[in-house]
Amino acid sequence: MLGVDTEESRAYRALVSMASAAPAELAAQLGTAESEAARILAVLEDRGLAARSVGDIARFVASPPATAFGAMLRQRQNELRLAELELSSLTELYRAASAGRGVAEVVDVIIGAPALRQQLELLQLGARTEVMAFVKPPVEIISARDNTAEDTAVARGVHYRVLLERAMLDDDGDIDSIWAAHNAGEELRVAESLPLKLLIVDREIAIVPLVSSPDVATTGALLVHRSGLLDALIALFEREWATATEVVTSADGFSGTGVDDLDVRILTLLLAGLTDQAVAGHLRTSLRTVQRRVRRLMDLARVQTRMQLGYQAARLGWFPETGHRRNERRTAAVASESPALAAPR
């Protein structure tokens, strides 16, 4: 990061930890050949990161880190400050231009899978506060595993709200990615169906992928700038989000209830509309285990039917409530599965 490569950095770090070192001693420390250690020491000396020992010119001592890297660090900091000022200036120019866009300029067209993939990555890398997304199959442009821009954005604190179509839970590989995304800090919910694929960044710009063509070159999307259309897309997202089922993977908020992580994941998948058999497959457990766990959840909630379990799960705060419609959806989803468990025992 400060102008030295990996080997030079390792050598300098080793030299800092030693009072002084001859090439042979540094080579032993680094696990490399003496000739290579001598070469690296010569490079460090040229860069001002090392100097000959006064008592023995065959030995080297490290230059003080604050002296060696202080100037370079200050230069990088100044460059970053200038870059931030330039970015702020460009952003203001962009916003002013956006405000003056005509009707025909509200929407841009992205043509081709490579261009769409690049735009998705750039928007996520540039996100400041929030990303909202509709995700529905098929996932063709960029998979969750390859979407490193998403991981980077989440790691630096960007809030992701991702709404999944229930069909995304049908693939075991997708479900593993869903668990991982939730555990990384993303907020996930599941809807029975979604009208379109969508990505909204900072409520300022959106991408609406078009129906994919067998010809990858003709795959494209709409890039929607600030406008009434963008406001409508945001409102659509919020409406679908409010009635969707939340994905919960951990029993951290269930202390004292006897509910564990597996119970929570079973209930999450059942409320999302999966069958007992599908839940067992996703969680790599047996159908009997799923049914036994559901029966235990019913006992904990002191209910006799799955319909009551769905109602009580919302009423007891096992899953955050977002309105009456979500309670109705949960109750119907849980009650629809397994007549044997739906009957009183």
Rank of each mutant, 00 (worst) to 15 (best):
W318Y: 02
R296Q: 09
T289K: 14
L163H: 04
R315W: 08
G100L: 13
I142W: 04
V16Q: 14
V106W: 00
S336T: 10
D176T: 09
E105Q: 15
A144Q: 10
I266Y: 03
G126Q: 11
R265V: 02
D171G: 03
P214S: 14
R306Q: 12
D261I: 06
A217H: 15
A96P: 00
V303M: 00
L169K: 12
T148N: 02
E187H: 11
V43L: 09
L199K: 10
R59A: 09
L73R: 12
E25L: 10
V139A: 06
R325W: 09
A191N: 11
V16K: 13
L230M: 05
V103D: 11
D299Q: 15
A42C: 05
L309F: 02
V43K: 13
A340F: 08
P209A: 07
Y311G: 07
L309G: 06
E25Y: 00
M298I: 06
T91D: 09
D5M: 05
G256F: 07
E140M: 15
P209L: 06
A180N: 13
L267I: 02
P137N: 12
R265C: 00
E130G: 04
M307A: 15
A115I: 02
L196V: 07
A206R: 10
A340D: 14
G31F: 04
V290T: 01
N147Y: 07
